[in-house]
């Protein structure tokens, strides 16, 4: 190779890569961030290439992860460092921390993206944070080992599940007080409202069920149970949930059953089980709801589900023990 040619190549390379990137990035490409609980990293996935494009070193034991509403930052709870780190999505650098209180795990934010509610697993507490000012503005006492967090579509009610107390606590967001507590099956891990606010779905890991709660009457009105031929019932452990915008379909991660159940949002019947990776934890839809990404803890990968076809179409290797996932708005 002559010196001239080599120089020529060097000259063209950036152009080529820019062209490639542009061609491969039509409007619907999203960026997914995966927290790797053991790896102490966050994997960044381009949903168009379905490949990891960056790996960001974060604090210890990253689990709960969520985009800020404006899409500029990703917040990740690093439990063993007792803080939430803020990643700038432009530079992929940690630029700030939030005063989360001890051992933050899952968190949720209001519709405006102003207030963040954090479950402090070690402290029986929910911490309230002003996201803009990065300050702690309050705390609420809840049951033993708070975990799942959800906010009602009207923003008036915050839900926290406590794993050893086995309850979904209903918290009035204006008064910051527990107004009702509903018993569910053992070890409730995740909660999510239907988009129309008519039902609250709460998964129980050890109970292996999903309770459906009437958010007005505060009673359990239904329960989804799972049964997979050839699998003992103890291996079926409901964890993460994903509800489609039309509230018609609910995806339920079943942990060591290595499957995601597809549940009819209306009849609460299980329609199908999709085989994903090992110990499936959490999930997130792409904003166009074409795809659903699940984190598979033990197999260290992410499964991509085609939502309409109800099929797993791809598996992407990420860091060690992937736990949470969030996708750019």
């Amino acid at each position: 190779m002559t010196a001239e040619k080599s120089q020529m190549r060097r000259y063209w390379l950036p152009f080529l890569s820019v062209l490639c990137f542009a061609a491969a990035s039509p409007a619907h490409a999203y960026i997914a961030y995966i927290s790797n609980e053991k790896g102490n990293t966050v994997s960044v996935i381009d949903t168009d290439k379905w490949a990891v494009t960056a790996t960001i070193k974060v604090g210890q034991r990253p689990r709960g992860i969520e985009f800020t509403r404006d899409g500029k930052f990703v917040m990740v709870a690093v439990g063993d460092d007792d803080t939430i780190q803020v990643i700038d999505t432009k530079t992929q650098q940690i630029v700030d921390t939030l005063p989360s209180g001890p051992d933050p795990e899952l968190f949720t934010q209001d519709a405006a993206g102003k207030t963040l509610y954090v479950a402090n697993e070690n402290d029986n507490t929910v911490t309230v944070i002003d996201i803009q000012k990065r300050t702690r503005i309050g705390s609420i006492q809840v049951g033993v080992e708070p975990e799942g967090m959800a906010i009602s579509p009207d923003g008036k009610i915050l839900i926290n599940t406590s794993e050893t107390t086995n309850m979904a606590h209903f918290i009035d967001t204006s008064k910051r007080e527990v107004v009702a507590s509903v018993l569910v099956d053992p070890r409730p891990r995740f909660a999510e409202f239907k988009h129309d606010g008519s039902e609250l779905w709460v998964s129980s890991e050890i109970g292996g069920t999903v309770s459906i709660i009437d958010p007005v009457k505060h009673v359990v009105t239904g329960k989804v149970t799972f049964s997979i031929p050839g699998l003992r019932s103890e291996a079926i452990q409901a964890v993460g949930l994903g509800i489609t915008k039309d509230d018609r379909t609910v995806f339920v991660a079943l942990g060591p059953a290595n499957r995601v159940a597809i549940v009819d949002g209306k009849t609460h019947e299980v329609k199908k089980y999709l085989l994903v990776g090992q110990r499936v934890w959490h999930m997130a839809f792409t904003p166009d709801e074409k795809y659903l990404l699940t984190t598979n803890g033990i197999s260290n990968d992410v499964s991509v589900i085609d939502v309409a076809a109800q099929k797993v179409i791809k598996t992407i290797q990420v860091g060690e023990l992937p736990w949470g996932v969030t996708i750019s708005p």
Binding site: N124, T165, N166, S181
Partner: peptide, 10 residues
């Protein structure tokens, strides 16, 4: 203690 934290709500 754990039972009583739960018991507070019940």
């Amino acid at each position: 203690e754990d039972n009583n934290t739960t018991g507070k709500f019940l």
